[in-house]
């Protein structure tokens, strides 16, 4: 029974954390290039609805997933144009993008309400999925869960081990200096936001295709917004984002488990757990490593103003 409890907790954490991880990585790439996008919520909604609608049309979630990623990338280009080419305020533009995503996704999704899809199903990995305990805990998930951590590693590799990543970080630190060094800051930022939108679309698709198997208006329920916080939590590092997403997903899972077990605490107080825990860990973390004190967000922000 304890084993079952552990697996249940863990799978809840992984499932809650996966869309958050994709969303956090999405936001992180943009912020590394110096652009904060509060409109990720909108990008995710577009991904969720386009993924669902395409899956309905094709009867298969694979085209849905691809379409969601592309739609997210395309939609994010609206934001890119406004903040890069038109140099508009990023914070306000992000919220405008969110409004747009909320409205547009609702319009696209309305005719498909109540349609049934075969969502992303569990992937069976030979051997691994059949392991008695570890198999159930770690290897019986849909493809997006299994690819989540590899994606984080890939983003890390992209940002820290490639020339392109160096450009992104250089532009994010100081676009003027990057320009002087022969880089094209605008081009790099457009590329970063394209990839960011791609991942944001995937994050949305995981909600509609793998978790809920349905489309509902504003089904992101603040996850995109929250990912902005997770990026700060992860200190702009893709691998730490894994820890952040898991911690937050774990807190959600824990509070659901506690409720279902009848722990005698108000569900409203239990619901605070993920937020309180994130804040507590953040504070402890920053005290342990004072040198890494945030404040970079202001720099990120001013760098492009």
């Amino acid at each position: 029974m304890n084993e079952m409890l552990f697996i249940s907790m863990l799978s809840g954490a992984i499932l809650s954390g996966t869309p958050l991880l994709y969303a956090t990585l999405s936001e992180l790439i943009g912020e590394r290039a110096g652009i904060i996008n509060l409109g990720l919520e909108g990008v995710m909604l577009i991904g969720a609805v386009v993924g669902f609608v395409t899956t309905v049309q094709f009867g298969n979630p694979v085209p849905g997933l691809i379409a969601a990623a592309l739609a997210g990338a395309l939609f994010n280009m609206i934001f890119a144009f406004i903040v890069i080419s038109r140099r508009a305020n990023q914070l306000a533009s992000g919220l405008a993008l969110m409004f747009c995503g909320v409205g547009l996704s609702a319009l696209i999704g309305a005719p498909f309400i109540g349609r049934r899809i075969e969502g992303l199903s569990q992937v069976r990995i030979p051997l691994a999925s059949d392991l008695p305990f570890w198999g159930r805990a770690f290897f019986q998930y849909d493809i997006l869960v299994l690819l989540a951590i590899p994606t984080a590693v890939a983003v890390w590799w992209l940002l820290f081990k490639t020339r392109w990543g160096l450009s992104v970080r250089a532009v994010g630190e100081n676009p003027t200096a990057a320009y002087a060094a022969g880089r094209n800051p605008h081009l790099v930022q457009y590329q970063a936001l394209l990839i960011s939108g791609f991942l944001g679309g995937v994050a949305g698709a995981h909600l509609s295709l793998a978790l809920a198997h349905t489309w509902a208006e504003w089904m992101t329920a603040g996850r995109g917004f929250f990912s902005v916080a997770l990026v700060i939590f992860a200190k702009w590092h893709p691998l730490r984002a894994i820890a952040g997403a898991l911690l937050f997903g774990g807190a959600i899972s824990l509070q659901l488990q506690m409720q279902a077990r009848g722990v005698p605490v108000s569900s409203f107080l239990l619901d605070m757990l993920p937020y309180g825990l994130s804040l507590a860990v953040l504070i402890l973390w920053s005290r342990a490593r004072r040198s890494a004190v945030p404040g970079s967000l202001g720099r990120v922000f001013q760098g492009t103003e």
């Binding site: 144009f81 508009a88 306000a92 405008a96 409004f99 909320v102 409205g103 547009l104 309305a110």
Partner: peptide, 22 residues
């Protein structure tokens, strides 16, 4: 007009205002 279109209206107005050349 569905409520969703009003969100788009809001976004359009904001985009236009934001994308102005300062």
């Amino acid at each position: 007009i569905p409520a969703a279109a009003i969100h788009i209206l809001m976004a359009l107005v904001l985009f236009v205002v934001l994308a102005r050349r300062s």
